Simulated assay, not measured.
Amino acid sequence: MRFFSAAFVAALSASNLVSAGSWFDSGDVTVNDAKKVPGDSPLQFCDTDHSRDTVQIEKVDLLPNPPESGSKLVIHATGTVYEPIEQGAYVKLTVKYGLIRLISTTADLCEQVDNVDLKCPIEKGVLSITKDVDIPKEVPPGTYNVFADVYNSDDTPITCLEASVTFGSKKKSTEAVESGGEL
């Protein structure tokens, strides 16, 4: 599966995964309010100390939320970069489908941010990103859990994000009932 960098530097990594290969559909989104990234998205901060993060994510919005397969997803993210993000920055990414690990890899963050028209080094300051993504029609139903731990080239933490999305449960049931079909 390919990655897509969408949303703000750190959210880039986790949101990248949004379109990386069908992570979102019109299903249920589980979010712990205490860890929730501000905005309208399923992103949450990991259970780690974020006091040393070089990026403060202020808001991530998805339109529509939840995203729908076969449609366009608009991702808008804002935040502040406190230290430059240099060549060599990376993301440790894990994607699970239920209990099955689909992806466990380390990817070059600077290669990914190129997808949202950014280049490393990313300088200090306020950053706002908007990106349109086409979500594929073929999204297998089930729960997807995405975990992205993002680091700068010197191993200082940029951020850590996670998301959990359940696909296909409500939409297919609703469509079957509306069309008079069996569940």
Rank of each mutant, 00 (worst) to 15 (best):
R2F: 08
F3M: 05
F8W: 11
A11H: 04
A14C: 15
S15F: 03
A20D: 11
G27F: 10
D28R: 01
V29Y: 13
V29P: 01
T30C: 11
N32I: 05
A34W: 12
S41R: 06
P42W: 07
Q44I: 02
D47V: 10
T48P: 02
D49A: 10
D49Y: 03
S51M: 12
R52G: 09
T54H: 10
V60P: 02
L63M: 09
L63P: 03
N65S: 08
N65E: 06
P66A: 08
P67Q: 00
S71Y: 15
H76T: 14
A77E: 04
T78C: 09
G79L: 09
A89I: 01
K96G: 09
I100K: 11
D108W: 06
E111N: 14
V113T: 14
V116R: 06
V116H: 00
D117F: 00
P121D: 03
I122S: 04
I122C: 10
G125I: 03
G125M: 03
L127Q: 11
L127R: 08
I135P: 01
K137S: 09
K137W: 02
K137C: 02
E138R: 03
E138P: 01
Y144H: 11
N145F: 01
A148Y: 08
D155N: 15
I158F: 05
C160W: 09
L161G: 10
L161Y: 13
S164D: 06
T166V: 13
F167H: 00
S173D: 14
T174H: 15
S179T: 15
S179M: 12
S179N: 14
L183V: 09
